[in-house]
Design a protein around this nucleic acid. Structure first.
Length: 419
DNA sequence: TCTGGGGTCCTAGGACCC
DNA sequence: TCTGGGGTCCTAGGACCC
């Protein structure tokens, strides 16, 4: 059997751990720049705050219902995620961390899966304060379904649902709408509904040839999974194949210097990420986008790919290539609202084959410099070392409701006093 | 006034090779 | 009028996920 463990309303729950007075109250977490709602407690969902809705549209709703509003605190959420995953890893030799708040565990032949799942829930709750739901089933896709049932019916299931019979499988698939199946997105849902398929069970029973034709092998695998045949294997923790840093600006920017400063900052962040996993990159993508939402202006998005003549992880070298690409797509007199950098085409630092001539290789002297910068920045919570061309502040973000870095910054550790 | 960010996988079709 | 056949590699773009 396979378990899917999912943290309930993860970001909102993280805020609650460090502020228990929020329990039973509506809590929401906003995206960067306090733009839109990206997490909601159950109470917030109940009063009709939609996922992804722009914050300015629900200010009144916030006020009327006394909603606790938080700016995204990814340092805190990332650390809480590591703690939860670490506890859960003790429950199986095979764990796949699927996202910041979800993981699969291979439970093999656990005799009493229900008790096992409830024990996990109790353990994670007691050690981290984060509530989780557990779904257990023969395949990953069915474990997703089981998890949804556990979450939807907490009092009946105790937060853990085990799909261990054919009757339960069919009942669940009759209950689940096809657009809510893991792996069926908007586009495929429309196609399926047009073909008269509305419930997950209808999809599971469709002809393979239709699925193959319309949804490729991905669809076939998914369909088999829903029928109890394991097709989606556990993927080992591997290195990422690309890293992006993209941001929506807090206002529009137009001048070359402003744009360059920000894009260089994004590049430095992305380069630090690839060094951390000991990769070198040899391709870069840069994009710029004008403001979406002004009807007076057309949306303009331009991107460029830069192929490096060698593989490198040096911020200095990567920045040069990024700026050369940026020059090609930057246009004066436009109002930019978003930009980003993606690094990819990685090779392993250890197994990298250098070119014959030194001038076709990365500058080896940068390595020590980068190591030193990374080491200093690791211990600095106030920006650390940066390039002169970088943004003075790492971000210029609206973060009006930011909570503390309770677990990752010594200055924010909570003090507990006995009275 | 204000609308997130970061990933992966699959495929069609072009380029190129013998 | 007739104009091979098969293979690989690469990439842009679509679709999906949280």
């Amino acid at each position: 059997m396979i378990a899917l463990i999912d943290c309930n309303n993860f970001y909102a729950s993280c805020e609650r751990v460090f502020n228990p007075s929020l329990n039973d109250k509506p809590v929401v977490v906003l995206s960067n720049n306090d733009g839109c709602v990206i997490a909601r407690s159950n109470e917030a969902k109940k009063i009709g705050i939609e996922m992804g809705i722009p914050a300015f549209k629900v200010q009144e709703l916030f006020r009327r219902n006394n909603v606790a509003v938080y700016s995204a605190n990814f340092a805190l959420y990332g650390d809480m995620s590591r703690r939860v995953m670490s506890i859960l890893s003790g429950y199986s030799p095979l764990q796949e961390v699927y996202s910041v708040d979800e993981c699969f565990l291979d439970l093999a032949e656990t005799a009493t899966p229900k008790e096992y799942g409830l024990r996990m829930k109790e353990h994670v709750g007691r050690w981290t304060g984060i509530p989780i739901s557990v779904g257990i089933a023969p395949t990953k896709a069915l474990a997703k379904v089981a998890n949804r049932i556990a979450k939807k019916y907490p009092s009946q299931t105790g937060g853990c649902y085990v799909m261990d019979t054919e009757e339960k499988r069919v009942k669940a698939l009759r209950w689940l709408s096809v657009e809510d199946v893991w792996g069926i997105g908007r586009r495929n849902a429309v196609k399926l509904q047009a073909a008269g398929v509305f419930k997950a069970v209808d999809f599971a029973e469709m002809s393979e040839s239709w699925v193959r034709r319309n949804m490729t092998v991905t669809g076939i695998n998914l369909q088999r999974e829903l029928n109890g045949i394991r097709c989606i294997e556990f993927v080992e923790e591997e290195k990422s194949k690309s890293f992006s840093v993209t941001r929506t600006f807090e206002k529009e920017y137009g001048t070359w210097d402003e744009i360059k400063e920000r894009v260089v900052t994004f590049t430095a962040m992305a380069a630090a990420k690839i060094r951390k996993q000991q990769s070198l990159c040899s391709r870069i993508q840069v994009f710029l986008q004008t403001n979406y939402f002004k009807d007076t202006e057309e949306v303009l998005s331009r991107s460029v790919e830069v192929r490096l003549p060698f593989s490198t992880s040096s911020t200095l070298e990567i920045v040069d290539f990024v700026v050369s690409g940026l020059k090609k797509i930057y246009e004066k007199d436009l109002h930019y609202k978003r930009a980003g950098v993606t690094l990819y085409n990685f090779t392993d630092e250890k197994h990298h084959q250098p070119a014959l001539f030194p001038e076709m290789n990365a500058n080896p002297r940068h390595k020590g410099l980068m190591n030193a910068i990374d080491a200093i920045n690791h211990f600095s919570s106030s920006g650390g070392i940066r390039l002169a061309s970088q943004d003075a502040r790492m971000f210029k973000m609206h973060q009006e409701h930011l909570s503390g870095r309770y677990t990752t910054d010594i200055r924010d550790i909570l003090q507990v006093r006995g009275e």
